[in-house]
Amino acid sequence: MQYSKPLPVITAETREFWQGCKRHELVFQRCKDCGTYRHYPRPMCPSCGSWNVEWAKVSGKGKVYTYIIAHQPFHPAFVNDVPYAVVVVELEEGVRLVSNIVDCKPEDIYIGMPVEVIFDDVTEEVTLPRFRPRGNQR
């Protein structure tokens, strides 16, 4: 079945992130001068202005910082998904990202919930990082 949900447009700036996901590794930019992680990918470090940057693999473990439950679809490809949760995850390394939770009912999500990354190969080109409750091994 064709994947009909929106996909990222992979650019020179974001390619390393998405290539990491394809390898099932969560990688973020880290400033080589001040050590600060950053997301979204950017040419310059917002903390110190440095252009020196490396891509660093992170643990993939974190906690739910905040979340929402979408009850109404605002995109045709999500009509059969509602209600679905969107979470902001704060990783152990301090970096935050928006994602979804799998293996968990929306009503069971709470702020502070421990989660870990899983990788969803949605197309040949794109793998989306999502999260599941930590300890919930299958």
Partner: peptide, 18 residues
Amino acid sequence: RDFEMPYGVFVPAHWYAP
């Protein structure tokens, strides 16, 4: 578009509800 829409974030309600 790249980092939130794939997860179902489309409208201002999705941006501000968190």
